[in-house]
Amino acid sequence: MALNTPQITPTKKITVRAIGEELPRGDYQRCPQCDMLFSLPEINSHQSAYCPRCQAKIRDGRDWSLTRLAAMAFTMLLLMPFAWGEPLLHIWLLGIRIDANVMQGIWQMTKQGDAITGSMVFFCVIGAPLILVTSIAYLWFGNRLGMNLRPVLLMLERLKEWVMLDIYLVGIGVASIKVQDYAHIQAGVGLFSFVALVILTTVTLSHLNVEELWERFYPQRPATRRDEKLRVCLGCHFTGYPDQRGRCPRCHIPLRLRRRHSLQKCWAALLASIVLLLPANLLPISIIYLNGGRQEDTILSGIMSLASSNIAVAGIVFIASILVPFTKVIVMFTLLLSIHFKCQQGLRTRILLLRMVTWIGRWSMLDLFVISLTMSLINRDQILAFTMGPAAFYFGAAVILTILAVEWLDSRLLWDAHESGNARFDD
């Protein structure tokens, strides 16, 4: 018995066209964080690309023209004298008006014999932002004059995390709450300039795509075929072959399989920071003279006294001054041990922890910024005066060393310790 099946006739004509040209192939790229070699397709503007294995951002879609970056830099340069030299806060102490600005706080630190601690604050609040705007201006002028731009481009990517104007702005709020127990506070004209400078700096850093600047100024022929001998440069993120001198053909720094002496430098910085954190938390970090009496505060006791007036601000200072430094030390110690013992479990967790400490590390400088600003506000000789204690130097040095330890660690070593050939990683 035959089955009668109805015929289905399409209502619209289906047209099949042959592909007349070869589909576009992607360029081969190595991930600078996990060293995976993959094919990167062509990316349009405002599109980002991520590593298929570790999800690290390979290409950032946010990109401004150099002219727009230069305009932002010149605007920031105009704001800087007002943000640093004009009063941020006014207080009335014992019937006398006192003005506080950024430069005055750094000068008070240096004047009291601790120039190293003052230079830490100076670099993060004044030096690094000033280098940022002058570097962008150098790129703008240098591109037109045919100057060598490689050193500036190499420095810009590392400079971003040292620009800490946003953290200093939080420190202004913390210092205001600490001082309000002794005097009446009012915002100064410099505060508005400083807030504007923070906003412009944040926007500029978020749109400063150094890798795209490398592509514009020093374009290189990408690798179009897969080759395990391809290496990625950690300076400019170019994937290719080393030249005859073993250097990256684009930025001219040595092109090595792994960062040289990464573990040794990381261990040295980490152990030194552990040693410095002990006096930083045991010795007094601030000293207040009130009517001839002397009151010393460690980091913890200062947080407890701050909690009596504002528990939320005390929580912020606790996280930045105690929780973050010790968390960074514990995480980095764990990561280094996992590399030495070739741990194969929990790779995803370790990668996330490394990215976390990379982002939060700079916030530990908050305590030094609060001390710097408070020193310029309260300084009335023996009637009422505020000065920093010996722990300030140890704390600042420990924070900087932990930042350097994270920067010096080559994250690809975590993958080397893991089993080879993993296309995915999980716990």
Results as ranks from 00 to 15, higher is better:
residue 353 L to W: 11
residue 174 V to P: 01
residue 393 F to R: 05
residue 338 S to H: 11
residue 14 I to D: 08
residue 270 L to F: 05
residue 386 F to V: 02
residue 366 L to M: 11
residue 117 T to Q: 01
residue 232 V to Y: 13
residue 43 I to R: 13
residue 271 L to C: 14
residue 182 Y to K: 07
residue 342 K to T: 09
residue 369 F to M: 04
residue 85 G to S: 07
residue 202 T to D: 14
residue 19 I to C: 10
residue 116 I to P: 06
residue 100 A to M: 02
residue 1 M to I: 02
residue 204 T to N: 12
residue 271 L to D: 05
residue 296 E to N: 15
residue 248 C to D: 01
residue 301 S to C: 07
residue 22 E to Y: 12
residue 77 L to R: 01
residue 312 A to Q: 14
residue 311 I to G: 09
residue 193 S to N: 03
residue 114 D to C: 01
residue 250 R to N: 04
residue 380 R to L: 04
residue 230 L to K: 11
residue 250 R to G: 05
residue 198 V to G: 13
residue 254 P to E: 03
residue 321 S to C: 12
residue 151 P to I: 01
residue 286 S to W: 00
residue 4 N to L: 08
residue 97 R to V: 03
residue 199 I to H: 04
residue 178 K to T: 01
residue 96 I to Y: 08
residue 244 Q to W: 15
residue 234 L to V: 06
residue 198 V to E: 11
residue 173 G to L: 14
residue 249 P to M: 04
residue 19 I to Q: 11
residue 353 L to R: 15
residue 352 L to M: 13
residue 243 D to F: 04
residue 330 I to F: 14
residue 3 L to M: 08
residue 407 E to L: 09
residue 264 Q to D: 03
residue 26 G to A: 08
residue 209 N to G: 10
residue 410 D to Y: 00
residue 113 G to Q: 14
residue 73 A to L: 14
residue 349 T to Y: 10
residue 364 S to F: 00
residue 353 L to T: 13
residue 373 L to F: 02
residue 163 V to F: 11
residue 102 V to M: 14
residue 121 V to M: 08
residue 347 L to I: 11
residue 246 G to P: 05
residue 271 L to P: 01
residue 51 C to G: 15
residue 103 M to H: 06
residue 30 R to L: 12
residue 320 A to Q: 00
residue 404 L to N: 11
residue 87 P to G: 04
residue 275 V to L: 07
residue 355 R to W: 14
residue 379 N to Y: 02
residue 29 Q to C: 10
residue 325 P to D: 00
residue 184 H to R: 05
residue 222 P to F: 05
residue 389 G to W: 00
residue 378 I to Y: 01
residue 99 D to M: 09
residue 275 V to A: 12
residue 178 K to G: 00
residue 5 T to Y: 07
residue 90 H to A: 13
residue 289 Y to P: 01
residue 265 K to H: 05
residue 68 R to P: 02
residue 54 C to E: 00
residue 221 R to Q: 07
residue 390 P to S: 09
residue 417 A to G: 12
residue 316 I to S: 12
residue 179 V to E: 01
residue 73 A to P: 05
residue 233 C to Q: 00
residue 147 M to A: 04
residue 228 E to C: 06
residue 180 Q to N: 14
residue 114 D to G: 05
residue 80 M to V: 09
residue 229 K to L: 08
residue 360 I to H: 11
residue 298 T to F: 06
residue 212 E to Q: 14
residue 72 M to G: 04
residue 188 G to W: 06
residue 209 N to Q: 03
residue 28 Y to V: 14
residue 292 G to W: 04
residue 420 S to F: 12
residue 240 G to D: 06
residue 267 W to A: 09
residue 194 F to D: 14
residue 360 I to Q: 06
residue 163 V to H: 13
residue 142 G to Y: 01
residue 94 L to T: 02
residue 234 L to S: 07
residue 97 R to A: 05
residue 27 D to L: 12
